[in-house]
Design a protein around this nucleic acid. Sequence first.
DNA 1: GCATTTCGCGCACGATCGTGCTTTTCTATC
DNA 2: GATAGAAAAGCACGATCGTGCGCGAAATGC
Lengths: 197, 197
Amino acid sequence: MGKGDETKMAVLDQAVDVARRVGLSGLTIGSLAEQAQLSKSGLFGHFRSKEALQLQILEHARTRFEQAVARPALHAPRGEPRVRELFDRWLRWDSLPGGCPFVAAATEFDDQPGAVRDRLVRDQRDLFDMIATVYRTGITEGHFREDADPDQFAQDFYGIILARHHTIRLLGDPRAETRARNAFETLLAHARSTASG
Amino acid sequence: MGKGDETKMAVLDQAVDVARRVGLSGLTIGSLAEQAQLSKSGLFGHFRSKEALQLQILEHARTRFEQAVARPALHAPRGEPRVRELFDRWLRWDSLPGGCPFVAAATEFDDQPGAVRDRLVRDQRDLFDMIATVYRTGITEGHFREDADPDQFAQDFYGIILARHHTIRLLGDPRAETRARNAFETLLAHARSTASG
DNA sequence: GCATTTCGCGCACGATCGTGCTTTTCTATC
DNA sequence: GATAGAAAAGCACGATCGTGCGCGAAATGC
């Protein structure tokens, strides 16, 4: 990896952190350059436009998410343990300073058509699919009821995370963490085959 | 109401709609003036700064929310019917073009200290308190279990709404609506005294 | 160790941002 | 219908936005 890619990666690393706090459009090239200790044009040279920068930030964030959440979760035993690991790691991911960058980006771009939104949609869809898939393996493992809808589970799963995200980040209520875990336990209990009804 | 307040209200009406789509900081005075068919300075004169404008947009949005969601819900019979009415109207509120403006503003400002954030925190807290209170009356009415935590219910309630918000607005998946209602029914079933365990 | 590519900086551009000041146009009151 | 006061427009400001060009410095390949 040459010098160029090296600084580019360093910039993207910081950019993802900034995007967590101010979002993808709140992020400005000037301020990002200042934080990276680069000139505005020096930084700009690595990306050919702001939109390209935003896209690469998303891509970089996705890589980080896969490293920190998705891939490790898949190393847990199939079924309920894997679902738990996924949830646990997701909460930690969202607990990093600024929260999950995808949540910020999603609310920013859900009404602004373009390449960024398209990319975001793809990522979000993959996220949902992953939850549903992990849940499905729990069904085949016999941990969960067979008559359950994995997509329903995915949306419920994500709702718990989102509610905690909002409650902690805006209200700063630390009990949101416990409530999220409570909700998750209830969700699991409802999904377990032994609790089927 | 003089001419001034009249146009001011008209501006705020449009501003809330714009804020639903682009948020409070995405909103620019120039574009808002253009949409309101006013000159930039003509519009600006009604508010003394952009922050003041943002605060008044929030205030206006809150008024609208109370008219469309909170107050009508309180006219429903105490207990479960009231909770249902609240949920139903909230979904309709979030289904207006651009979605709930508070969701957009919350993710925008949860990391930016200032008067806007303070105001937002107060509103969000009131929202949560309202859900919890409505739920509490359901306990005293004997509709819900007595050993339930109203704050837990509030967070779960809001999570269902948020998940639907994200899924519909970004992924455009119409099934999110049904899933949200399913989740709500499950939440209620779990809260009912007859389903206590 | 030199030649060549790459990288980063300085500078400048047009546009737009939020915000004031001054003037004109409209409203409301007598 | 004249007049005082409010409302809106016109215009300009400094700042910052994203973006381009050209040059020196640094890294890379032979």
